[in-house]
Design a protein around this nucleic acid. Sequence first.
DNA 1: TAGTCGCG
DNA 2: CGAC
Length: 217
Amino acid sequence: MTASFDLFADSPEEQRVALGPQAVVLRQKASPLAAELVARIEDVLQHSPLYQMATPGGKPLSVRTTSCGTHGWSSDPTGYSYVRHHPLTDQAWPEIPAAWSALATEAAQEAGFAQFAPDTCLINQYGLDSKMALHQDRSEQDLRQPVVSISLGMSALFLWGGMQRSDKPAHVLLHHGDMVVWGGVDRLRFHGIKHLTGAPHPQLGAMRYNLTLRRAR
DNA sequence: TAGTCGCG
DNA sequence: CGAC
């Protein structure tokens, strides 16, 4: 079931936007918390450098990616999977910053998913030319566990689709500090990012980071 | 097939 | 929106 209209997040007082029975956008009022989240990105990237992945068919992704947690999401010629080591450094992924996992657990709770304990966080860095085609998150072992996505930096146009790739997606503008949580009947909804929009971010410049916290195992 | 193209 |  796809929304028949576009959702535009232009009212700052709006805290929650329902995307489905078990999917919601949570917007933070102020951003001291978001600033703290941003500060931890630098820590993680220092030990876990961004790199460019490609689809199993060999098409490069337009985002740069890295991970933290016990597992990291990976795409390579053999398919999508979770791996325990950074493919370039061969080192174990750094720990998920406590501020990130605590916030993800809290957001999941808010969305109706109790005791969410992420073991992986995918970090996607978007530039002005980056986008993400419609896809499903389905490499996780237990699909009863939700997905928590945190937006930082420039705003972006989020595509919220249906259970089939051809379903027409709703458009949702995501801003710095916004979180999207989805699970249950909405867990396999197709989603993507059309493009960045608005002004460069004061701290991050013409960049957006998306933190996707999941339970891989 | 987490990308991109070609057709309408 | 199907096809690769």
